[in-house]
Design a binder for these strands. Structure first.
Lengths: 110, 110
DNA sequence: ACACTATGTCGTATGTTTACGTCATACTAC
DNA sequence: GTAGTATGACGTAAACATACGACATAGTGT
């Protein structure tokens, strides 16, 4: 998301787009759901539950971590990933605001 | 979103990802906000308000239209785009459900 | 019919994401 | 220390997204 013209939008628009992009892959949705259900939060276990290679899952985990949506606690040899529930709540509110604005428009006059 | 392995996720995960992807670009966020504020719903006017070429904006409009998030009424020479508020409300609910699930998790035990 | 306007379509260059194998690192257990 | 395991980092091929100029289409007004 670093195309030249991207800079010319409002910070809010860019932030929403950035967050939406984090959710724009089923694997990342699945990871968040897994962590919420806490079936497993150890990296290897997460990878084992998804139909993707461990390398690819690790990449998706890094992407979520880059936005701080999840956090990784290193515990010896294993890494345990957890949801950043605080941040998720804020993101939730941002999307809620956006949709509220979008769905309270009158019917189009055209 | 048609990489080989994408098929191996649940329909819900795929649908959420597909919707998130529609919002994963500031231009598309901006278009939805513009239509909600109804500053303009004529294709050309929308393009004029964004820092992108008319062609590129048209492409983003097609993308939103492909998911039926917006609709285009042809009126003679101009095309008037409108939000599909009904669908947006359903999408809003889907995201709300997803976030509710994600944010009600206990704190991670790790 | 003719010029003009508003839009979409096509081709295409460039940048980004996805997916994965291989390698490097770092901890564990013998 | 050596062997083994859990991870992340690196390299890379293929798919996809973004952006835009040039062209095609279709309506408007004269």
């Amino acid at each position: 998301m670093t195309y030249a013209k991207t800079a010319d939008f409002t910070p809010t628009q860019q932030e929403l787009a950035r967050l939406a992009k984090a959710l724009a892959h089923p694997a990342r949705i699945a990871i968040i759901q897994l962590l919420a259900a806490k079936k497993s939060c150890i990296s290897g276990d997460i990878a084992a539950e998804l139909p993707l290679s461990r390398t690819t899952v690790s990449q998706h985990l890094q992407e979520l971590k880059a936005l701080d949506l999840i956090r990784g606690d290193i515990d010896g040899l294993t890494v345990c990933y957890c949801l950043n529930v605080e941040l998720l709540r804020r993101v939730q509110a941002q999307f809620a605001d956006f949709f509220a604005e979008a769905t309270t428009g009158f019917d189009c006059a055209c």
